[in-house]
Computed example of a mutant assay.
Amino acid sequence: MSPASDATHLASMPVTVVVYSHRPEVRDAVRTAVGRRPAADVGPVTWLECETGDDVVATVDAGGVDLCILDGEAQPMGGLAVARQMDQEVADRPAVCVLIARQPDRWLAHWSRAEGTLPLPVDPLTAPGVVAGLLRVHAQRPVVRR
């Protein structure tokens, strides 16, 4: 497939994004900042909300998730721990973006194997670009079997 047809294919395919936080206002802020279509070349987003780390893992295990946006400040299990757990336990895990409250915590996101970070509070000017970039990369990566 050529890069132009890749972009057309991605734009026509709906994507599924999990947003995880124990706080409904954080989940709402992420959905509002990213919107239904983060970029013209990315398909429409279906949002799945999770309130617990176990819910995230079960949702990802069920399949069909393209990206997880995980609140690093979530309680009792933070998004960094969920990201690390999925990296260790899920054969073909989706792309992962972690919400971090402090920029110095980016190293923790790297440790958790997250491909991206977004600052809290979520910036509606940068969030769609980060999400679209992660979805583009995820769409092009080969399936990995462990």
Rank of each mutant, 00 (worst) to 15 (best):
L125N: 12
A91K: 10
Q140F: 12
V17E: 09
G116N: 11
E89W: 10
P3M: 09
M77S: 11
T126Y: 07
L120C: 06
V144L: 12
R145P: 13
R113N: 05
V96S: 00
Q88Y: 12
R84C: 12
E25H: 15
R145F: 15
D6S: 13
S112Q: 08
Y20C: 00
R84G: 12
S112P: 03
D28Q: 14
E89M: 11
L125H: 12
T16S: 15
Q85W: 12
L70A: 03
A74N: 06
V96F: 02
D105T: 06
D66S: 04
V18Y: 07
G116S: 13
V82C: 01
S21F: 03
V15E: 11
P121T: 06
D61P: 10
I100P: 01
Q140P: 01
R146F: 14
E89F: 07
L108Q: 09
S12V: 12
Q140Y: 11
V131R: 06
V17T: 14
V96N: 04
A81C: 11
S21M: 02
R136D: 08
L80I: 07
R146K: 14
M1S: 07
L120Y: 01
M77P: 00
V15L: 13
Q75V: 09
R27S: 04
L70N: 03
D28K: 12
L80A: 07
A29K: 02
L135N: 07
D41A: 11
E73T: 05
V137D: 12
M86Y: 08
I69C: 01
C97A: 14
